[in-house]
Structure formats: structure tokens, C-alpha cells
Design a protein around this nucleic acid. Structure first.
Length: 284
DNA sequence: GATGCGTGGCT
DNA sequence: TAGCCAAGCAT
């Protein structure tokens, strides 16, 4: 896999959370923001966020409403709540310092298997198995000859990824970073750019098989138009803009199905993304 | 293990 | 054009 490391040296994007002056907190914030969200959309939000809350203690002390406004349109605003709770837990349990041990990272709100491994590797230089969607897809193709990884992340696949990570600590960090980047930029989901891939000449099983289309392997995309998810987003956008809104105003968001608005308000309040007081809905 | 959870750009 | 897709997590 030397070819991938050499490729990364030449082609890596110059992202702020990869700079020499990066902090564990900055890396953690970037990883949360990047969950299911493209880099180009994260960049400006991350810059603002780090300027405002440069340490976990700064975010921990911020009002939730302000945190949700700063999250802006990144999507999945529950991530913002969890990041806020994560900062508070770091202050309370780790003296304000992001922990480096994967099991301690895993214990924090919003940090799952992937994010714990990524922070361990990219913030602390630990040897971890970073199995994100890019690495999974790249190995599914290069090693297993399949178009896409399986929908569920099985123990067998975890073992496969682990077997590919170099044993040397510093080298493992670069391999994780480089393989993820190659998946994100070259071995893309829809249209892989094999002409620009360093593995094309080093035995990619999927390319060798002739890039067969395997539609059965594709995961089904959840619908969005007309769903509660869309309505929740519309309500949150209104609350971010106006601070608060009365029920009648929100009901106008879907005159054909007022029950949909009510249902979404209930789940937003249950999620801690909104509060209701005297018929007025507002950010927490 | 299957679902629900935002948003916007790309093909 | 209408899907398809983007560094997942929690339940």
C-alpha cells in the first residue's frame, strides 16, 4: 500500500483540522460535523465554531440555543446537542481535556466506533482501525472485488479492515488518512476515477473484474420529500431564524396535514431540540 | 439488525 | 429530472 501513501502525499486536501497546529478538540469537532456531511459544507461552520469555542469548556458553558444556531444548516441537529453534551462530559470527567483512549472516547455522547477510532488516530497518533464509509468501500473494491461494502458492518469485515492497517503506529495513521482520502476523492461511490487511482496498477480486484454493476449491493436511500424529517428541518430553520414561533404559525407549514406538524413538534421537544411554553415554541 | 435522523450539490 | 449520496450514531 505504499502507492496509496505516495498518492496521499501529492493529492491530500489542505484541511484546517489536519494542520500542524490542530488540537484534539478541533479534530473531534470536525469528526462530529463530518458525520454524513460533505467537507465543503463543514469548512465554514468549523472555522466559526473553533473561533467561538476553542476549548471544550467554552462550548460546555454556551447556551443550547446559541449552539443550535451556530450549527446552522449542517443537518442532523441532534449532533449539535450531543457535541454540547460531549463538551460538558469532557469538562466533568476529563478535566477539560479530550481523552485519547478509544474506550473513553466511546463513552462520550455522539462518539461511536468510527469517531473514537478517528480521533484516536488523527488527534493522538494512535494505531486504530478507522472503518469509515470510504475505507470500507475502497477495501470492498480493491480487496474483495465488490462494487459496494455490505450494508451492515460485520465482524468479518472489521477483521478485514484491521488486517490491512499497518502495524507501525505512525504508518497506520497515514494509512488510515490516505485510504479514507482516496475513497473520498477517487474511489467514489457512483463513478470511481480509476484513471487517477494509484491502485489501478497494483491489483484492484473490482477493476480487474471489469467494474461490474452490482445493484443488489446498493443500500436503499431513505426518502425525504414529504417526511417528518423534512418537516423537522423546516421547523428548526424557523426557530433558528426567529428564536420562537407560535403554534399557529408553525401549523401553516403544512395546511394539508396539521397532524404532521404536531407530531414533529412533539418529537423535537422530546429530543431536546425545542421547548414549548405557553403555546410558544422556541429553541432550548 | 432495521430505522430515524437534515441538507444541498451532483449526475 | 429525480434519485443518489456525503468522515455515523442511538435506539
Amino acid at each position: 500500500m505504499d502507492a496509496v501513501l505516495a498518492w496521499y502525499h501529492e493529492a491530500a486536501r489542505n484541511l484546517p483540522w489536519r494542520q500542524a497546529d490542530r488540537t484534539p478538540w478541533g479534530v473531534l469537532v470536525s469528526e462530529i460535523m463530518l458525520q454524513q456531511t460533505p467537507v465543503v459544507r463543514v469548512l465554514p461552520r468549523w472555522q466559526d465554531w473553533m473561533r467561538r469555542w476553542p476549548e471544550p469548556a467554552d462550548l460546555a458553558a454556551a447556551p443550547v440555543a446559541e449552539v443550535l444556531r451556530a450549527w446552522d444548516r449542517l443537518g442532523y441537529p441532534r449532533r449539535a446537542l450531543r457535541l454540547h453534551a460531549c463538551a460538558q462530559a469532557i469538562v466533568e470527567r476529563f478535566e477539560g481535556q479530550v481523552p485519547s483512549a478509544p474506550e473513553e472516547l466511546r463513552s462520550l455522547p455522539g462518539i461511536g466506533e468510527y469517531t473514537a477510532a478517528a480521533v484516536g488516530a488523527f488527534a493522538f497518533g494512535e494505531r486504530t482501525v478507522v472503518a469509515d464509509t470510504n475505507i470500507r468501500r475502497l477495501l470492498a473494491r480493491a480487496v474483495s472485488g465488490r462494487q459496494q461494502p455490505a450494508p451492515s458492518f460485520t465482524a468479518a469485515e472489521r477483521a478485514l479492515v484491521a488486517s490491512c492497517v499497518p502495524h507501525d503506529r505512525a504508518r497506520s495513521v497515514r494509512w488510515n488518512q490516505a485510504t479514507m482520502e482516496l475513497g473520498a476523492l477517487v474511489c467514489t461511490s457512483r463513478t470511481p476515477h480509476c484513471d487517477a487511482c494509484p491502485l489501478a496498477a497494483h491489483g484492484c480486484a473490482y477493476l480487474a473484474a471489469g467494474l461490474p454493476d452490482q445493484p443488489e449491493a446498493k443500500r436503499r436511500v431513505q426518502p425525504f420529500e414529504g417526511t417528518d424529517r423534512q418537516m423537522r428541518g423546516m421547523i428548526m430553520a424557523r426557530l433558528r431564524a426567529d428564536g420562537a414561533a407560535d403554534r399557529a404559525l408553525l401549523d401553516a407549514l403544512d395546511t394539508a396535514d396539521p397532524a404532521r406538524v404536531e407530531r414533529c413538534l412533539t418529537t423535537l421537544v422530546a429530543d431536546g431540540l425545542a421547548v414549548e411554553r405557553d403555546g410558544l415554541i422556541s429553541l432550548p
